[in-house]
Every structure is written in structure tokens, then in C-alpha cells.
Design a protein around this nucleic acid. Sequence first.
DNA 1: GTTATTGCAAAGGCTTTGCATTACG
DNA 2: CGTAATGCAAAGCCTTTGCAATAAC
Lengths: 131, 131
Amino acid sequence: MNPLTERLRGAGISPTRQRREIARALLARPVHMTAEQVLNAARVRAPEISRATVYNTLALFCAKGLLRELAVDRDRVVYDSGLHPHHHLIDIDSGEVRDLPAGPWPAIDPAQLPPGFELAGVEVIVRVRRR
Amino acid sequence: MNPLTERLRGAGISPTRQRREIARALLARPVHMTAEQVLNAARVRAPEISRATVYNTLALFCAKGLLRELAVDRDRVVYDSGLHPHHHLIDIDSGEVRDLPAGPWPAIDPAQLPPGFELAGVEVIVRVRRR
DNA sequence: GTTATTGCAAAGGCTTTGCATTACG
DNA sequence: CGTAATGCAAAGCCTTTGCAATAAC
């Protein structure tokens, strides 16, 4: 039926009304959104949704691999629904995030890691400012 | 005289007692420290130093280019006194930060940036976990 | 009917602010 | 002396938590 609902089910997540609205805002296409933006977007169709539910759901989606959390800087966190390997270009003044193809940087060779560690992820952030 | 004091002067920073203690903790060698760690370290020799002063001073040192602020994740920020180009390896469980040589990643070609933007910095974070 | 999910409001943690006091040149 | 820096406590912001009400299966 609804592909988003199926995606939630596939990830082992009960597709409640609130979660479906959050998924609609976030998972329909690759986007970068703050928690507040997600709340506002979800409230368009589900006005009663609470901050707590948004935060719970964002953490749940991250844990299930539907989202990535991206620490833009000390006080900006965005949730990224682009699942393909990619990096980020960030306007340091506005906080706007844009995707970069993962191409320019080689993958990490796991053998180069310190002994006893395994790779959990690589994050590349290119910060720019308007000239 | 004192090389750290001279460095502060060279950066256009009045070397007050508190700032000298913060510089001693942070700038004497390349380290990664949280604001709280800086406060504790500075209080060893300047017990009256306040959180507000530490935060003010960290922001000042960053603005003057003596430090870089590194957003490890949503709730971990460290200040990095390593000034040479380098990237970071982070234990996602402990938050421990280690430097990586900048080598494996080529420098960004400024011509590749979107028009109207200039490069402000590149951050590479390799996240690992204990196996 | 049970169990999971939600909403609310309060609590939390870290950072910033306002302002009087103190140190500095 | 005049300006800049500091300390304190309060305020802020975003996020999490506790718990009763609600919805899902």
C-alpha cells in the first residue's frame, strides 16, 4: 500500500499515525531537517503531535537505520534521510546543509584503524560561507 | 618571556591571569578538551575562575584562531588546540578523540564549490568503536 | 484486554547573559 | 581614571524524563 508505511514495518516500527506523519516529512525524499522543522511539518497534518514524540521517533528512526543524525556545529543538529554514502556541505552562517557525492574521498581502509577498533562511520563536512 | 603569554599577545588577547591558565591547560600542546575539563584544569592554579570566563575565553581563542571547536556529536563538544591540518578519529562510546594526519584526503578544490561561496574549513571525522 | 505509544509538564544539562565588582593600563 | 575582564546567579535553549491518558493490536 503506502510505501512509507511499508518501510516503517520493514524496519520493525509500528506505523502509528504520528510516526507516519514524521516519515512523510522526512523519509519521502532525502532531506536535512532539524527536530523543530520535523515537528512543524508533522503538525500540518497531525496538529496534536508533541515534541516528546518527535524526539522519541527521531531517535527510533536513527536506531533503525532510517535516518542519520548530523552534528552541524555546537548548537545545530539535523536529521538526514539520505541513505546513500555522501558527505555534507554546510553554510556556516545559515546552517543550510547540502549533500556532496562521496566520490572525492577514498573509503577508509579498515586495516588502518588502531588495533581493537572497528569502523563505525566516516563523516566529511565541508564548511563554506557566502562570499 | 613566557611563550604562551607571547602567543596570547600575538593574537591580540590581553594575557590576564585566567586566560593564561586556560592557555596553559589548552595551548601548551595539541589536546582535545571539553569546557568542563578546561575549567577543572584551570582551577588547579586559579581556583576562583568561573565557568562564564572559561566559556568567554574559549570563544575568544576560537575567534582568534588559537583553537578549533569540534562537534563530536549532539552532546559532546571539544576544543582542539592542534593547529596543523588534521582530521579526527573518535571512539563513539567513550568520546575519546585522536588526531589523524590530513594525508588520506585531498584538499578541496575551491573551484568545485557552489558559485558565490568560499571555503571555510573541512572536517573529517572517522568514528570507531571498540571491537 | 494488554502492551506500546503518546502528550504534557517538569526536570536536566550545558551554555549564555546581565550586571555589579575587580583588575588592568 | 576609564576600559576591559571577571564572577555570580539567573535565564535560556534544546532535549529528556516520568507518568497518566490514549491508542494499537
